[in-house]
């Protein structure tokens, strides 16, 4: 019994040990779990963005974003993050083909993309704070503007940071030859999700 239970801790073996009914989705168990996690995380962002929308609609005025942020920097950040999604997809492809060297290189590129993004964000925060912006005050108008800036970009930045750490772990495991293609794909799913969320933050907070 002990061995059976132990074997089940790796899903590849689990599927082989017992014949199980066909899953309606062709995803494996860990991937399915990751999708559910992404769903729940997406709803947390939805709550924050929904609250932001509510505040903005009920606020009598709202600062012109282009007067506060350098939109060129934000566009550059967005470009870097989306490019890192592309390198991530290529890393997954390389991992599935068993090309470890390529995988490591592409994962490394993705990690660098994430770090560059975080660096830009840190610069942007420092700039914002330097101009006098705090959680409850900003020189450009209603305090809800800076509160939602810090909370939403902060929450997203925390996700990017977690993603970078996750990718670094996957990189080290891949280097040691202890990471399956499935593991790379799971980390990739999370990374793509973080990017997609940024597209919404970019559109709703900086552009609209």
């Amino acid at each position: 019994m002990e061995t059976l239970v132990h074997e089940r801790s790796t899903p590849e073996v689990a599927d082989a040990v017992d014949e199980v009914a066909q899953s309606p989705f062709t995803a494996n168990t860990r991937k399915f779990g990751m999708w559910l996690f992404i769903l729940s995380d997406a709803l947390t962002f939805a709550a924050l963005l929904g609250a932001y929308g509510f505040m903005r609609l009920t606020s009598p005025e709202w600062p012109e974003q282009s007067g506060v942020f350098d939109i060129r920097l934000i566009t550059f950040m967005t470009f870097v993050l989306i490019s890192s999604s592309a390198s991530m997809a290529m890393a997954v492809f390389a991992a599935e083909n068993g090309e470890r060297k390529h995988t490591l290189g592409l994962l490394g590129a993705t990690i660098i993309g994430g770090i560059v993004f975080l660096g830009c964000q840190a610069y942007e925060w420092a700039h914002f704070i330097g101009e006098g912006g705090t959680l409850f005050f900003n020189p450009w108008g209603v305090p809800q503007f800076s509160a939602s800036f810090f909370l939403i970009t902060g929450f997203h930045g925390f996700h990017v940071l977690s993603g970078v750490v996750l990718l670094a772990v996957v990189w080290v495991l891949s280097l040691l030859g202890r990471c399956s293609a499935n593991g790379v794909e799971l980390a990739g799913l999370y990374w793509h999700f973080v990017d997609v969320v940024w597209v919404f933050v970019f559109a709703f907070f900086y552009l609209l």
């Binding site: 729940s40 995380d41 997406a42 709803l43 947390t44 962002f45 939805a46 709550a47 924050l48 609250a51 505040m55 705090t134 959680l135 409850f136 305090p143 809800q144 509160a147 909370l151 929450f155």
Partner: peptide, 20 residues
């Protein structure tokens, strides 16, 4: 997750000085 998001905003109001 939506409750979690709301809780984050409420906590910010309580200890961060925001006014959501």
């Amino acid at each position: 997750p939506v409750l979690l998001g709301a809780g984050v905003l409420l906590l910010a109001d309580r200890i961060g000085g925001t006014s959501f």
